[in-house]
């Protein structure tokens, strides 16, 4: 599958991406972990965020979705400033976040997990049901297990559920944190295929991945995060060919 050329939409005289992050500084206590991260995701793009463990990838995503307070910086999503919005309002403005480790609600059933994904639509129950069924169409496996407790699912099924849950609100930007973690190679490919499908339906994707080769294969552009700073950025193909990236993340 060939990457589509990113479509860009003009906002006034400026050309702005869907997501625009400027100079993000984040600290835990006295220890600053992000030292001015800037990045951008255009409409219809898949953007990969690479880096070693501890570089600050997860913190970046958690800051975008409002789970972590930032010290300084600006986050704009589709022209709306979401910098200081609490997490539940960021979701409402169109950012879906599939967290690291999936974080499904284990003691709740698969269907309850999906419905919660549509929590903001709770006043339109018919719409929620419609979207739950759309999820089942996309992931037939979940339909079979709809009444099972989510905690009893296999790792791959849990990841599916986490993605389906985040798609319930039809976000403009889907943020995925290590979706391939702990999965068998074949499932990893399947997950990446699904990410491409998601983009094909019009949702932009920001992807944190440790599996750099796979991520660069489906991404349009990528950033490399090192010790809380963006060290490299560019088109995915260029980064995949970059000797520095190859040495550090692609095994030479």
């Amino acid at each position: 599958m060939k990457p589509q050329a990113p479509k860009r939409q003009p906002y006034g005289t400026l050309e702005l991406g869907l997501l625009n992050v400027q100079d993000l500084h984040v600290a835990y206590g006295k220890v600053e972990v992000l030292h001015g991260v800037s990045l951008e995701v255009a409409e219809g793009e898949i953007v990969a965020l690479l880096g070693s463990n501890g570089a600050g990838k997860t913190t970046t995503l958690r800051t975008l979705s409002g789970l972590v307070r930032l010290r300084q910086g600006r986050i704009v999503l589709g022209g709306e400033d979401i910098t200081r919005l609490p997490a539940h309002k960021v979701v409402a403005s169109g950012l879906g976040h599939v967290p690291e480790g999936r974080r499904i609600f284990g003691p709740l059933s698969v269907e309850e997990n999906l419905r919660l994904g549509g929590y903001l639509l709770r006043h339109d129950l018919a719409e929620v049901e419609k979207r739950v069924h759309a999820s089942y169409a996309l992931f037939p496996r979940l339909a079979e297990r709809r009444h099972q407790l989510a905690g009893t699912l296999s790792g791959g099924e849990q990841q599916m559920l986490a993605i389906a849950r985040a798609l319930m609100l039809e976000p403009r930007l889907l943020v995925l944190d290590e979706p391939s973690m702990g999965l068998a190679p074949k499932l990893v490919f399947a997950i990446f295929a699904i990410i491409q499908q998601i983009r094909a339906k019009g949702t932009s994707v920001l992807l944190v991945e440790q599996n750099a080769r796979q991520a660069l294969r489906i991404a349009d552009r990528a950033y490399v995060l090192e010790s809380g700073r963006i060290a490299l950025s560019g088109p995915a193909s260029a980064l995949a060919a970059d000797p520095r990236v190859r040495a550090a993340y692609l095994g030479g």
Binding site: M1, F139, P140, R141, G156, M160, K186, L187, F189, A190, F192, A193, I194, Q196
Partner: peptide, 10 residues
């Protein structure tokens, strides 16, 4: 594998 097989895989 991309595309075609993923439904079967799940």
């Amino acid at each position: 594998t991309a595309g075609a097989e993923e439904a079967a895989l799940w």
